[in-house]
Amino acid sequence: MMWPFASPHSGWLVLYLLTFAVHIVLVSYVLAGTTYALIQALRKKQDPIAERARDLLPFMLGLGITAGVAPLLFIQLLYQQPFYTANLLLGPRWGAVVPALIVGFYALYLAKATQTLRIRRLALGVGVVCFSFVAWSWTEIHLLMQDQPAWREMYAAGDRMYAQTGVLPRLLLWLGAMMTLFATLAAWWAAAPERRRLAVIALAGRAVSALAVVLLVMGDATVISAAHGWLYLMIAAVAIEVAGWVWIRLAPDGAGLTLVTAASTAALLAGVVVREAPRLATIEPPRAAALEASGFPVFALTAVLGIALIVWIVRSIRDRAVPPS
């Protein structure tokens, strides 16, 4: 099997990577969409992209959270001890993620329901703060769980923050990617002139990520050679995607969006493998109980049924209803 899918963990690893990618797409829409709506509210602009975003955001957050639970499950099979340790080290500070999400969730509802511009700005602002905090927390825990030498010191000092230099550039990388992913999703619902604007956002997002990569490389980040194949695939996909956005900018009605979507999906999938590469070295030997656990057929059947039901739900809505404006 192709690297890194040749270990006894591969089943979990594949599911982890796929569900994590879905999670990232959805929360990208949430964080970048809230930010976009906030900026437009501050500029007092009437903007269909922002309106649609405000309308969809609570639902997207619900989906994003639900999608996050799946990688949360698999990460506990792949990296149980480091993940739990990082959780415990961050302690109550880590627990703050949940209240932040609850506050953010209600803020999105408020932003959607209110007619008052000031309240809308405030609500969206609160949302941006909450979701940025959550994104930062995940980046922090992701790095902390890999930094075993730091655990003991951090515990002894009672520190609740992991202020390692890599956290901020890494977060910046994600923020850029989130802008691009938001633009990709939003473009599917957007009319031609709006797509032009989204192309600019997407390209700006890639520029932000590129800047972050420069910062990370300067801070001596490397990609292990086993992952180079995936790295080149990702770079190629991003190059095609960027060309696609330029095309959309010039001809928003063309097939550019299909191209961009395909390329950014490829870039995302290759990217999550590259992201995993440094951590794979610390992967735990699978525990016997976990390897022997039964129940997979039930899960697989339920998953098929679930997909069928969700498709049916979407179709029956499309056939029978006009969305309230």
Partner: peptide
């Protein structure tokens, strides 16, 4: 404890998660 539960029952947990996805969609 939670590690043990995940090890033993992760496919059932994943099953529960699918039902939750259906619930939220419907």
């Amino acid at each position: 404890t939670i590690g043990l539960m995940i090890d033993e029952f992760h496919w059932l947990w994943a099953t529960e998660w699918v039902w939750f996805g259906i619930e939220i969609s419907a």
